[in-house]
Design a protein around this nucleic acid. Structure first.
Length: 392
DNA sequence: GCTCAGGCAGAGATTAATAC
DNA sequence: GTATTAATCTCTGCCTGAGC
């Protein structure tokens, strides 16, 4: 406990006969304000004065201990943004860079929203109101809230605040809307629909993107897994590709060529290739050689799916190309490379493939994830169901 | 010269996947 | 079912180069 600065001490006659009220001014180290305290004794002698001083000091110490339990002394001076920086430094040691990058972006928003705010100034009501006003969707809110809670819990654990503020705050998430459900339905493509889009991509450069998108559909890979593929990962004899890393473009984009471990342990896998997938790889083998011989800016880093410069193909360009031609083909869908993973799994389910085999192929450790997230009901499935009912 | 598509990155938003 | 981690997606803007 900090030192208590004792001020003037004086004695007054109590209203009760034979009693004296000893009073003292002091500076409260918690509030930094000059406050007064008192004690009643039966004497105003010098000895009684010493006794009164000790008793009043005990009284003040108890009061300060109580105050410190709800307000940390340091919390008045330490800014929330400082706590965020300390927390991020701590996090940086134990999470992957992509997660760290995401958290840094969230934290930057928090820093902006609570600029100049001391950690000691936060209250449960203030936090509750802050999250109640947030315009984000359900899942984003949950993530945002989770990060905020982690920061506050970190501050509590390290005694920057003495009260577990987040215990009193609850996240109110909006209900699922029709738009949310509609969004889910717009993720899917059939192979025939995709072919309609690829036909439009006839220019030589577009052709590469079209084939990469087709390869994503045929293998169900994530973009990061595809972008990090090198020729040594391709076993031509056994017709599979070995997924042993992912491209982390959160570290300064694709040019940094940062490879890291796949998203999960189950994602470390072999993906066996169909004839069409092998055809696509064969095309890239010869087209990459053509780029090396003709392209002035092409450097061969050994990637299977490089851009014209030799860097791993960029996610944003793939997505943009997909969306441009998809819209031109007349589809009102969500054009993202990841939608092709959804479509791949649904396509396999639709074709009657074994669920465990699908799960292993796409790198899920739990079959319920495959079922829960990816298997959307398609028109083909609905029609087959009606046929079954008719047959019986 | 104009148009169009690819190449690239930063920041904010959202979702997937797993752990608990 | 909730929390946490890790990834993808969206929006934006500037630049380069090929084709017409």
């Amino acid at each position: 406990m900090r030192d208590i600065k004792v001020g003037s001490i004086w004695v007054e006659k109590s209203k009760t006969v034979g009693k004296y009220v000893w009073r003292m001014r002091y500076e409260n180290p918690v509030t930094c304000k000059v406050e007064k305290t008192s004690i009643t004794l039966t004497s105003k002698s010098k000895q009684a004065g010493n006794q009164a001083l000790n008793l009043m000091l005990d009284k003040i110490k108890k009061k300060i201990e109580k105050q410190s339990a709800t307000l940390d002394i340091a919390s008045e001076f330490i800014l929330f943004s400082d706590i965020i920086d300390i927390w991020l430094e701590d996090q940086g040691r134990k999470i992957k860079h992509s997660t760290y990058a995401t958290r840094t972006r969230y934290c930057n928003i928090l820093k902006k929203d609570f600029k100049g705010k001391a950690i000691g100034d936060f209250s449960p009501l203030m936090i509750q109101r802050y999250f109640n006003k947030m315009p984000y969707t359900r899942k984003t809110l949950v993530t945002y809230f989770g990060i905020f809670r982690q920061i506050m819990n970190f501050a509590f654990r390290l005694d920057f605040i003495k009260v577990d503020l987040m215990k009193k705050v609850e996240l109110s998430v909006p209900p699922i809307t029709i738009e949310d459900m509609e969004k889910e339905r717009k993720k899917l493509f059939s192979y025939d629909e995709l072919k309609q889009i690829f036909i439009l991509m006839t220019r030589p450069d577009c052709r590469r993107n079209a084939l990469i998108l087709e390869f994503l559909f045929l293998t169900g890979l994530r973009y990061g897994e595809l972008a990090s593929l090198k020729w040594e990962d391709y076993d031509k004899q056994a017709s599979y590709i070995d997924i042993n890393s992912t491209l982390d473009y959160s570290v300064g984009g694709v040019t940094k060529k940062c490879h890291t471990t796949p998203k999960t342990i189950a994602s470390n896998k072999k993906v066996y290739l169909s004839n069409r997938s092998i055809e696509i790889l064969t095309y890239f083998k010869s087209d990459n050689t053509r780029l090396l011989q003709n392209g002035r800016s092409f450097i061969d880093y050994g990637y299977i799916f490089p851009s014209r410069t030799g860097n791993p193909v960029s996610w944003r360009d793939l997505g943009r190309s997909f969306a441009n031609f998809g819209k031109r083909a007349g589809f009102d869908r969500k054009f993202s490379p990841h939608a092709l993973r959804h479509s791949h799994i649904t396509h396999l389910v639709e074709s009657g493939a074994d669920q465990v085999a699908i799960m292993e192929r796409v790198g899920h450790s739990d079959p319920t994830i495959t079922t829960k997230i990816y298997t959307h009901t398609t028109d083909k499935m609905r029609s087959r169901l009606v046929d079954l009912i008719d047959e019986n």
